[in-house]
Amino acid sequence: MRARVIALGAAAVVFVALGLTASAIATHAFSGGWDGPTSVLEEDLIAWQQERAIYLLLNDAAGPLITAGLYCLVGAVLVLAIAHLLRERAQRASASATAS
């Protein structure tokens, strides 16, 4: 259980970091850090389109990545809550068995 909590927490950190990074890269590109095509040649246009697609992908993936990270965080806390609940029930059962 502890390993799962750690895995979920690590996944949360990784997802949120990836989302923030993707958002930063896309924002920097669309705010002037990325120029237009260098020429009207077909290969230059294709390369520019591919680069644009990557930036659009990063911009669109930032939100879902952050969402996934926050979901992992909530899942880790949920696992801890369920473990705490089960532990409480076990202690209560052992206490009642001792009393009876």
Binding site: V77, L78, L80, A81, A83, H84, L85, R87
Partner: peptide, 18 residues
């Protein structure tokens, strides 16, 4: 044990944390 002391946070009410 591994299942009884997760991360040393035994006293915390995780439902309230949620």
């Amino acid at each position: 044990t591994d299942d009884e002391a997760p991360l040393g946070l035994r006293r915390l009410r995780f439902d309230l944390v949620l």
